[in-house]
Amino acid sequence: MEIEVGRVIRSSTTRFTVGCRVLQPQVPVFGALVKARAGVEIYGLIYDVRMEDDPFLRQIATVDDLQPEYIEDQRHNRQVPIEVGVLVVGYRHNGEIYHWLPPQPPLSLDVIHTCGPEECVAFTRQFDYFRLVLESRDLPADELLAAHLRYAAQVRGKDKDSFLLDAGRELARLLAMDPIRLDALLGRIRP
């Protein structure tokens, strides 16, 4: 099932930011695979969910026995939009999935959806996009990839373990020069 995350408010070829109103239990989730339809379907991983503060909010936060209406007001009416950071990991064009950067970024106000299990399986059949994640060193890249892989394994049901083993082999190849990093990452996705 696809769930709407929000709409693009800023974008570039490598990353984009989605604005959404409130946090739902299912979305947006760290590591989730999402897509934007912008001629081509652009895939990305949610790497950040950000709520900004301001002096008003900070002051309200210090109040004792705060009534729920104030909290709801700050969350639903003032904390808008919640900013969701997405790292671009590939795209689909004419039915083909590519694990490299799309020719164009999504446009502002494009709607972003989560990907359903089938689409997630289809996108993660190959691992060429790992490099795009691992090279984003200003992000918690390893945590992001691990969270994403755990989710991608989950939707595979009984094929979960073999998927994680394959992913682990690919990581071992990519991070052969950095055994400490590799070890930490494998520890996070161990079946």
Partner: peptide, 12 residues
């Protein structure tokens, strides 16, 4: 419109 005691977000 702030509905005290409603547990609902006000309407602005």
């Amino acid at each position: 419109v702030f509905r005290h005691g409603s547990q609902r977000a006000p309407e602005v």
